[in-house]
């Protein structure tokens, strides 16, 4: 085909140029995206008072870096004999919120996943009219923004007496529409013959769902666990309404209360924020593949 001997060569150099340009573009975008986080990270090594007064600066002034904000944050663990009672209180408060967030996230993930798995199983594995109707309702609940239900739900949770408790936060979201949706999509791709084989072997309906189907749904569990953990760890609006006592606050609500106009908490705030990203970042870097699979499941089939 190529009669002109120069043709392949120009094509190749064209390819090289476009390859370089495109890669350069993504390097540039990634740099911009990394910038605020890196700026926050470097700022966390700088005096808090200065951050509050001037914002984050472009000059790094590496010589002035210190771990002060972090030692302040970890006072309770690093220097237990300190006499600075404010530092001890602050450190205690932060780790209390951290622990609250961990507990709430763990509870939310385990319960949401289990409930959604069985619900999706019931909708998918038995061809019933009710199942199809309920799946339609799953879609319907997705198309009403949560913020609209927020106030009546707040009243309801108060009446039920679960305000200011973990249950008040996770119960309304236990049957998460997107999680049911994903489990259903995943199960539709599994061989139904397994069920009949298990039935012949004398396995009960519930036995099948736990012993046969659950193990082969593991990848779906992994995807949803990460998304659910992320959502719960970063959730703010609803927990902010439910929790009233400082001792029950999650990390996000706690950090928000540190944002006072006086700026007296910025040492705790900036170091605490950076340390607050770590659990999610670790999970993300390890399970990155599952996360993308779970997140994009709705986008392909529509």
């Amino acid at each position: 085909m190529a009669k002109d001997p120069n043709a392949p060569k120009t094509m190749e150099s064209n390819h090289r140029v476009s390859s370089f340009l495109s890669t350069a573009l993504f390097v540039f975008i990634s740099a911009i995206i990394a910038f605020p986080l890196l700026a926050g990270l470097t700022a966390s090594f700088r005096p808090a008072r200065e951050i509050f007064q001037n914002g984050m600066s472009l000059n790094l002034k590496v010589k002035e870096w210190s771990l002060h904000n972090y030692t302040y944050l970890f006072t309770k663990f690093l220097n237990p004999h300190t006499t600075d009672s404010v530092a001890i209180t602050d450190s205690n408060k932060y780790f209390m919120w951290y622990k609250n967030s961990l507990v709430l996230t763990l509870l939310t993930v385990v319960l949401t996943l289990l409930v959604c798995y069985f619900v999706a199983y019931g909708m998918t594995m038995y061809k019933t009219k009710l199942g199809n109707f309920l799946f339609f309702m799953v879609i319907a609940t997705m198309s009403v923004p949560f913020e609209i239900l927020m106030l009546p739900l707040y009243q309801e949770v108060t009446t039920l007496g679960i305000i200011n408790t973990n249950a008040g936060v996770f119960l309304p979201g236990l049957c998460a529409a997107s999680t049911i949706f994903f489990f259903r999509q995943y199960m539709q791709g599994l061989p139904m013959e397994l069920l009949d084989a298990a039935r012949v072997d004398g396995c009960t309906e519930y036995g099948i769902s736990v012993k046969i189907m659950m193990p082969i749904t593991k990848p779906a569990f992994a995807s949803m666990a990460i998304l659910c953990a992320m959502g719960s760890w970063n959730n703010m609006l609803w927990p902010m309404l439910v929790f009233r006592d400082t001792s029950k606050f999650t990390l996000q609500i706690g950090l928000n209360t540190l944002l006072t106009p006086y700026g007296n908490n910025y040492d705790l705030l900036i170091a605490g924020s950076m340390f607050g990203i770590i659990p999610i970042l670790i999970i993300y870097l390890i399970f990155n593949r599952y996360l993308v699979a779970g997140m994009t499941s709705g986008a392909v089939k529509g």
Binding site: P36, L37, G55, I277, Y284
Partner: peptide, 25 residues
């Protein structure tokens, strides 16, 4: 990665970046 950060943290970072003093980025 930005999607991993909570609104509290990302909002704070942007507020500090866009602070009105001469020292903000």
């Amino acid at each position: 990665i930005p999607a991993l950060t909570s609104v509290v943290i990302s909002g704070m970072l942007f507020r500090l970046m866009f602070s009105e003093g001469d020292g903000g980025q």
